[in-house]
Computed example of a mutant assay.
Amino acid sequence: MEPIRKHFGNELPFTLLLDYKETKSPQRELPDHQHDWYEIIYVYGGKGSFFIDQTFYEMRQGDVIVVPGNTVHRGFPDNEEPVTSSAVFFSPGLILNQPYSESYAYLKLFDAAKQNKQYKYTLSPEHAGIVQNDIDAIHNEREQNRTDGGQALTLLLHLTLLHLNRYCLPQTAGPLTSNTLLPDWFREALSYINDHLNQPLELSSLAGRAAISPAHFSRVFKQRLGMNVTDYIATKRIFAAKDSLLQSSGTIEQIAMACGFESMPHFYRTFKKITTVTPAAYRRNSRTH
């Protein structure tokens, strides 16, 4: 399924948008999507997972997730204890067009995230409090709607980015080396899985495509994603099934088969394990919201 492209309307008074302290609903989260603007997510509490650039991250209190522009991502709040977070969206032009920003790379955290394939950072309580204050200041400024609000928001955004650069990146970071990057075969394997969810995906065949041993494939997969190959494939298939349940009129059996499940009992067990509800209940409950 192709990712959705989210657009931010030109009618916005500033090229900055804030979703302030929202408790996320699993039923109302966008499917895989991307947008031109950059995004900063700060987690106040709750549980959930976040998918970005073919990687899953657990979300907990004090976490910061940075989303560079045009990067496919989506959130998965926990059904029982959903995440409460703030999200700051901004046009990179708001940073790059400032004359005083040329000597300091305010977007270097986003550049490092793309290069290192690391998008989540966990702040200490002290630093989390500072970033929370930064977000509160942006929220309060937007609420005031002053004539000079655009200038104030730009300054507050720069301060927030400066703090994030200080707290999320090592102060004496050396040059990045190739061993910090994902191996090419690993990225290709993730892409192949994503594009062939409706087909059989066995560890041995995936390892064969990568020209490595199944044991090495499985070990690296677990280290990089925090879950084994089978669980990752099952999770991706259920995510695809959830999207289809909401966006198509196909029967549950048709959707299960299209997402690569060979039997309905297996599909029902896996769906209930990951979402805590049945496919029919998920479709019914989502359409009532």
Rank of each mutant, 00 (worst) to 15 (best):
N70Q: 09
R74A: 02
R74G: 01
E80W: 03
E80Q: 07
E81K: 10
T84H: 11
S85G: 01
S85C: 09
A87N: 04
A87W: 07
A87M: 10
A87G: 04
F89G: 01
F89E: 02
F90Q: 01
P92M: 03
G93W: 10
I95K: 04
I95R: 03
L96M: 12
L96A: 13
N97V: 02
Q98R: 15
Y100G: 03
S103D: 08
A105C: 05
Y106L: 05
L107Y: 01
K108N: 00
A112C: 05
K114D: 09
Q118I: 13
Y119Q: 03
K120D: 01
Y121R: 07
Y121E: 04
L123S: 05
S124M: 08
P125F: 06
H127S: 09
A128E: 07
A128W: 01
I130A: 06
N133A: 13
N133L: 11
D134A: 07
I135T: 06
I138K: 03
H139R: 12
N140D: 07
N140V: 04
E141F: 06
R142T: 11
E143D: 06
N145H: 06
T147W: 05
T147G: 14
D148K: 12
G149R: 10
G149L: 11
A152R: 14
A152T: 14
L153V: 05
L153P: 05
